[in-house]
């Protein structure tokens, strides 16, 4: 196991962990004195909600990797089914997730597209 390639791989894994941690540590430094009652907290909270909702929306509409192999219509129908069942069942998370994933799975298995 101790060949050159393995060490390179472990180095990459370690460096990716450290460079991601830099973002987290930076946030601890900047946010050290922010109180939950402050206007700054409200601002940071809006920024984070918008950014993370944008991330999920981007994953559905403009996905990278494997998910891009499913057509946009399947992804949107799956999400639509999940949201409809979620609110239809008074905000039932498990029901919504189950509906969305089932509809998506049925579409990729039975609809005639190259997946």
């Amino acid at each position: 196991m101790v060949d050159g390639l393995d060490w390179k791989l472990w180095g990459i894994v370690l460096l990716c962990g450290i460079t991601t941690y830099v973002w987290r540590a930076l946030a601890v430094v900047i946010g050290g004195r922010v109180s939950p009652e402050s206007e700054s907290f409200k601002l940071f909270s809006c920024i984070a909600y918008a950014m993370l909702a944008g991330l999920i929306s981007r994953m559905v509409i403009l996905p990278e990797g494997l998910l891009a192999e499913a057509p946009l219509s399947y992804r949107l129908i799956g999400i639509g089914a999940a949201v409809a069942v979620f609110f239809g069942l008074k905000r039932n998370l498990a029901g919504g997730v189950f509906a969305g994933v089932t509809v998506f799975a049925l579409l990729i298995v039975f609809a005639d597209t190259p997946v």
Binding site: C16, T19, T20, V22, W23, R24, L26, A27, V28, I30, G31, G32, V34, S35, P36, S38, S40, F41, F44, S45, I47, A48, M51, L52, L55
Partner: peptide
């Protein structure tokens, strides 16, 4: 990899308070 995870800055910043 680090750029793809830059979201942790605003994320951690918003929840640390």
């Amino acid at each position: 990899s680090s750029a793809a995870n830059a979201r942790f800055l605003p994320m951690v910043l918003s929840v640390m308070p």
